[in-house]
Amino acid sequence: MKKGLLIVVALMLTIGLAACGSKNTGESTNSQNSGSTNEAAALSGSLLATGSSALQPLVEQVSKKFMEDAKFAGITVQVQGGGSGTGLTQVSGGQADIGNSDIFAEEKFTDADADKAKELVDHQVAVVAMATVINKDVAVDNLTKQQLVDIFTGKVTNWKEVGGADEKITIVNRPSSSGTRKTFEKYALGTKSEDVQGSIQEDSSGTVKKLVSETPGAIGYLALSYLDDTVKTVKYEGVDPTEENIVTGTYPVWAYEHMYTKGEPSEIEKAFLDYITSDAVQNADVVELGYIPVGKMQVKRDVDGNITK
């Protein structure tokens, strides 16, 4: 009985190893193929773009158009979500060709991993702006930076302290690792927010909107594309979060959407990145999905937040 089992196990190990071996060779011939066809006129191969869920809808929509384009018929683009951290990890590790991220790679890869960020090449494909939103029952329509800091660090817990009625403030924040939260903290607060006792944390913008619109006294922040009349948008330091104020740099709470490649992009990657930054896409799909085209921005910002005109 035992001997039989041993034979079975040995047999299966051999099959398993053989399967692994054949898979590897399959992959290597594949890459060789794509390498050789690259030199030919028509590009062919496959691309995997993964990461940020905030950028995912845009990349998905553009990839569909891209694949329908006769010029790029040989290229298949796959788009996956998973979050900015996943995108950067996978592009850095070579599992994905393009890593989508809401924040600069330098902000994600810190300390021991700092070298990994240097290998990655940044391609900024869109700008996303965020607005502070509150529940409709709150009679406040402007908040200063200091007031926002006080609210999001738990110093102010009642709306009457910032000019509203006597009502408890419910914070609807994002998880501490979220790119949206990092952008909001960096450009709206200038400091880190606290996970205040009793505050809510949600990752999905849809849920944040629902909770802010339904919870009395709630405050949160949303990308402009999610704004509608179920929530109330407040001014930041007296400035409305309109596209005009954002492109001129008057309204500071915005961030680039990044698509990272490891090293300079390959021909296929370059074809796709050129396509997504082309005017045809920037002025159509990017605007349609609520982002702001990178080319429209009259100001530029680097990793450290320095703004240049």
Partner: peptide
């Protein structure tokens, strides 16, 4: 589930 996708593999977080 909230933080796994946003953090980089191998970081302390």
């Amino acid at each position: 589930t909230l933080d796994m996708g946003n953090t980089v593999m191998g970081s302390t977080h």
